[in-house]
């Protein structure tokens, strides 16, 4: 298992009931691995308990970064949420806690 936290860092932001979470790869090999394995489906599954979705992934190859936009993630919106973490500040670490399936290690294949 490779954890996203081993490959990347990121930050969560809020707008209304939508959370956006950046995932920024530490190097080119990690970027390529994440591009393959950290799909919208994988993220939607990891967030199923806290977000209704959908999840959209934007790629920024020049910065080796992704922007995940996750709808229905903030308990109806920051201002009326019952959650302790109304802004979803801590959701970046739910993203970073995702374990990618075996075979996804940074040095798999040619590496970089």
């Amino acid at each position: 298992m490779t954890r996203v936290h081993d490959l990347a860092h990121g930050r969560a932001g809020d707008k209304g009931n939508t959370s956006n979470i950046s995932v920024i790869a530490r190097d080119t090999a990690s970027w390529e691995l994440l591009r393959r394995a950290l799909t919208e489906e994988v993220v939607a599954r990891a967030f199923a308990r806290v977000a209704s979705g959908p999840v959209r992934r934007y790629e920024l190859p020049g910065l080796k970064a992704f922007n995940f936009v996750i709808e229905g993630a903030l308990g109806g919106g920051v201002t009326r949420s019952l959650a302790q973490d109304q802004h979803g500040k801590g959701l970046s670490y739910l993203m970073l806690a995702i374990d990618l399936p075996d075979g996804n290690t940074p040095n798999a294949g040619e590496g970089a």
Partner: peptide, 12 residues
Amino acid sequence: CTQQLLYEIHDP
């Protein structure tokens, strides 16, 4: 800088 670039942005 990269973290803040994407902060609270949806479609980049």
